[in-house]
Write a protein that binds this DNA or RNA. Sequence first.
DNA 1: GTCTATAATTTGATAGAC
DNA 2: GTCTATCAAATTATAGAC
Lengths: 180, 180
Amino acid sequence: MKSKILKTAEEMIRNGGYNAFSFRDIAAAVGIKSASVHYHFATKEALVCAVVEHYSEDFFTFLSKQAATATDAHSKLDAYCKSFLLAYTSTGKSCLCGILSNEVCSLPDSVRACLNQFVEANMDWLMNALSELPNIESRRTKARLFYTALEGAIATSVLTNDAVWVESVSAQLLKDLKNG
Amino acid sequence: MKSKILKTAEEMIRNGGYNAFSFRDIAAAVGIKSASVHYHFATKEALVCAVVEHYSEDFFTFLSKQAATATDAHSKLDAYCKSFLLAYTSTGKSCLCGILSNEVCSLPDSVRACLNQFVEANMDWLMNALSELPNIESRRTKARLFYTALEGAIATSVLTNDAVWVESVSAQLLKDLKNG
DNA sequence: GTCTATAATTTGATAGAC
DNA sequence: GTCTATCAAATTATAGAC
């Protein structure tokens, strides 16, 4: 039941953010009462932190599989782009952490901390994928571009209901990687 | 008073999105009662549409000034990047339309339409700035990358409380423009 | 244009039975 | 673990006086 709640909460947050769902919504969706949801997660803050952590784990597990056979930077980053594309196409929804990042000024500090960890984990993964580049500052800058562009692209794909944003941005990022 | 309400609503939405403010919040901030806010804007939906339209006008007015003396693509796009940077540094907040785009699945259709117009207006501006590039598909793809990357960057700058995301992404985008 | 008053609903959270 | 029942507060919105 706990994981069923997490899954449902993730879906609902990805539909409209922190304030777009209630404990009663979750309860109805999983077939229990809201008081029972509170048994599993004492507060909304705690629930959302757990959702972010769970989402992050899933994301990097999937990413590892996608990049399992990749040996060079280009194919690793191609796998990174494909992870964002599939995150969109499989649900029609945006990135959980992208959505919550945009609301951060009105979120509890604990959620902010979880989101920062997701960003750092993305940067670590990207920096590692780019390790064949000699200059560390150039690596960092390219990593930042990949992360922010794909976050922006998945949000715009949801808005316009068109995968072309993620697809097109991915293609351009990989092309610029070769040239630069 | 109407414009005072618009300004306050913009500020509050940029702090946490559609569901992170109430008519009472607005009323208290501008010094009237919530019923009086309803006199100016019948519904929350109408208020938010007006805020998006007002924000869009301001954004492009500012952008025009920034790019007034720019003659080539590179300097025009430099002005575009600087507009995002200033949108962040002057407020510490993200882009209004980036925030709302992320919540779009739970927003009224009329707001979605306003947001789509903002994206289209950005694409039009960028396509025009890139008009010296021969290939139209390549122009479109580059335009998409600039818009999405800066939207993602400003959100991440807010999350981490660090302008480096917008600055660094801007620099890389302009660098890749020269190379590709 | 702004007010008071209020309707109708929803929210996060708790107490206590089973 | 799940339930019923409930609380205190907040929400969008409206009616009608001034």
